[in-house]
């Protein structure tokens, strides 16, 4: 039986794509990181499949990544952030991340791959905003490592060179509460589209409050 742990990444992208397509999904369904209910509706397995790369893109991608990471974090997984030096920790806490298991790595741009690879060794969830010029080879190496270590990598931002099993893209976003010279930023309503390979071939759309007026994520 082909098992994802036995899968050796090939340097040939086509072979790799093929291998990913034949990977059994039923077996991997047993190793899911739990997510918050509004996020679960977006994921084909209802949770984050270990060993995969998920991309969060579009306006508000950092917030979306935090909301996705909140579930595993609340359930006891460590979460490491690379390339998000200025992450709003208060916002992260608001979405539900456990600050006791959050680590923010301030790596030089050239060191993102090292930082992410070491984190993947020991941490379930790595939120990564790679530099724009990140080499596709380094991205593939990291993806293979995540697969090998049963970790999940959440890539923040459009990074076409990054192989991702699933993309969660904010299509539309609209802030509420702020007017011309009055009010305040209160909540943001977004449409998130999930596109992926395999079980997620059909795009799934979900309306979310990201954040709600109290800084959480909720289905709209």
């Amino acid at each position: 039986m082909v098992c994802e742990h036995m899968f050796v990444p090939s340097s040939t992208p086509r072979l790799q794509r093929l291998a990913e397509r034949v990977r059994p999904t039923a077996a991997s369904r047993t190793c899911l990181l739990p997510v918050l209910p509004p996020i679960a509706a977006l994921l084909p397995d209802g949770g984050l499949r270990r060993g995969t790369v998920v991309r969060c893109a579009g306006e508000g991608a950092p917030s979306l990544a935090m909301a996705v990471a909140a579930g595993p974090s609340a359930a006891g997984s460590w979460c490491g952030m690379v390339g998000l030096d200025e992450v709003g920790v208060l916002a992260a806490a608001g979405y539900g991340l456990d600050l006791d298991r959050l680590v923010v790595v301030h790596a030089a741009p050239a060191e993102w791959a090292v930082a992410a690879a070491v984190l993947v060794d020991g941490i379930d969830l790595v939120v990564l905003a790679p530099p724009r010029y990140a080499r596709p080879a380094a991205a593939r190496t990291l993806a293979a490592r995540a697969r090998d270590r049963d970790a999940v990598v959440l890539v923040v931002g459009e990074r076409p060179g990054f192989p991702a099993e699933l993309e969660l893209a904010v299509e539309t976003a609209r802030w509420h509460g702020l007017a011309e010279g009055a009010g305040r930023l209160q909540s943001r309503r977004v449409t998130v589209v999930a596109r992926g390979r395999g079980s997620a071939v059909r795009p799934v759309r979900q309306e979310l409050w990201l954040p709600t007026a109290t800084g959480k994520v909720a289905a709209a």
């Binding site: 508000g60 950092p62 917030s63 935090m66 200025e86 992450v87 709003g88 920790v89 208060l90 916002a91 806490a93 608001g94 305040r184 930023l185 209160q186 909540s187 954040p211 709600t212 007026a213 109290t214 800084g215």
Partner: peptide
Amino acid sequence: LPPPAPAQVTA
């Protein structure tokens, strides 16, 4: 300054 908190905070 009320919630929600900003997702990115600059030093």
